[in-house]
């Protein structure tokens, strides 16, 4: 987070984290498509031909509040494939809030658990505990016929009872509920004493 008191500007970094093809980029694409263009910049995507994120996706959102106070959200996704761990670490650095996008498909159960464990370890390496950073979990792809139950998914990856949302990001369902929730958690943290 970076605060410019003279410009009355807060910069907040939000990172969408999760296993490969869980829908992180789809979330950002929906936000980009639906948000009024006056509040957002261009969506920058660094991907391969197979539409897999190579390095990150990035969407800047800027909101001017009453009194001319600006809040700039820098929203990132990370690449989900296991071998891009180094890229995930770099993008995660300095995050003020995290959205973990989990895949509801039973075949992806191990990937959800593995990437959540990696998130916990990466945060610990950066001196951050999972319970000290705003985190929202999104259970995506709820429309697949054999989707895992929420109880199973919570037992697998939501050990701290963080807020969670069911979503079908490709149909825009749950996308803005998730975004609103993480922003609210980040703001709640900001409105207490905060290091500059």
């Amino acid at each position: 987070m970076f605060i410019d008191t003279k410009k009355k500007e807060i910069n907040v970094k939000i990172v969408y984290y999760g296993p490969a093809l869980s829908g992180k980029t789809t979330n950002l694409k929906v936000i980009y498509a639906k948000l009024n263009p006056k509040f957002r910049g261009d969506l920058v995507t660094v991907d391969t031909k197979g539409e897999r994120t190579l390095y990150f996706d990035f969407l800047p959102i800027e909101i001017t509040l009453a009194g001319g106070f600006k809040v700039k959200f820098h929203v990132y996704t990370v690449p989900g494939q296991v071998f891009y761990k180094a890229s995930r670490k770099l993008v995660l650095k300095g995050a003020d809030g995290i959205v973990f996008v989990a895949d509801s498909s039973p075949e992806r159960r191990e990937s959800n658990i593995q990437i959540m464990q990696e998130l916990i370890e990466t945060l610990e390496e950066q001196g951050i505990s999972l319970n000290s950073i705003p985190l929202v979990i999104q259970y995506n792809k709820r429309d697949i016929p054999n989707a895992m139950s929420i109880d199973i998914m919570n037992a697998d990856i939501n050990h701290l009872n963080n807020p969670y949302f069911e979503a079908i990001a490709s149909q825009e369902k749950g996308v803005f509920e998730t975004l609103d929730a993480i922003v609210k958690l980040v703001i709640k943290k900001l409105t207490t004493k905060t290091p500059v």
Binding site: V71, V183, I187, K188, T191
Partner: peptide, 8 residues
């Protein structure tokens, strides 16, 4: 003003 922020 900031706590009431909703992207919807």
């Amino acid at each position: 003003i900031i706590e009431g922020l909703s992207f919807k």
